[in-house]
């Protein structure tokens, strides 16, 4: 298990993707799986920065935990509660004018990971669990 703490700013998305990408690589995941983990974590952290901290200063604690064939990335923040489950799925069949600009990040997160779970711990911040199981080379 490895944990790194990043300042909650968009500038940190690059090093955050690097950190979880390495965790996925260490877990022997395929290139597609590594990209999926990186993108899902990017979307989750972007939401934390935007909707939990509203651009204010803060921290995102990123933990990677690999057991068996399952990589779990745990994101902890101390901003306002933001449960991705409350975000409706975007309609991907709408034409250009009716296409909603929001909701895409959460949708991608759910598509790319096997499990997305949100938990609020009183006094211990908001926790988001992003779970990806290794399927190996396809």
């Amino acid at each position: 298990m490895r944990t790194l703490v990043f300042p909650a700013s968009f500038e940190q998305l690059d090093p955050i993707r690097e950190f979880v990408g390495q965790a996925a690589r260490d877990a022997d995941m395929s290139e597609t799986e590594i990209c999926a983990v990186q993108m899902a974590v990017d979307e989750a952290c972007s939401n934390i920065i935007e909707h939990a901290y509203h651009g204010r200063e803060g921290e995102i604690e990123v933990t990677s935990d690999f057991r068996g064939d399952t990589l779990t990335i745990i994101l902890r923040d101390y901003g306002d509660p933001f449960d991705p489950a409350g975000i409706p799925e975007p309609d991907l069949t709408c034409d250009l004018e009716d296409r909603r600009v929001g909701g895409l990040g959460v949708y991608l997160m759910r598509q790319l990971m096997d499990e997305v779970k949100y938990e609020q711990q009183p006094g211990a911040g908001n926790l988001l669990f992003l779970v990806k199981r290794r399927r190996g080379t396809e």
């Binding site: 998305l13 993707r17 990186q38 993108m39 990017d42 979307e43 972007s46 250009l96 004018e97 296409r99 600009v101 895409l104 990040g105 991608l108």
Partner: peptide
């Protein structure tokens, strides 16, 4: 690499251009 932020940028741009 492109995240949903990039897709949003493309969507907004495409609307303006079309």
């Amino acid at each position: 690499y492109m995240s949903s932020a990039g897709f949003r940028a493309l969507l907004v741009g495409q609307r303006a251009c079309k």
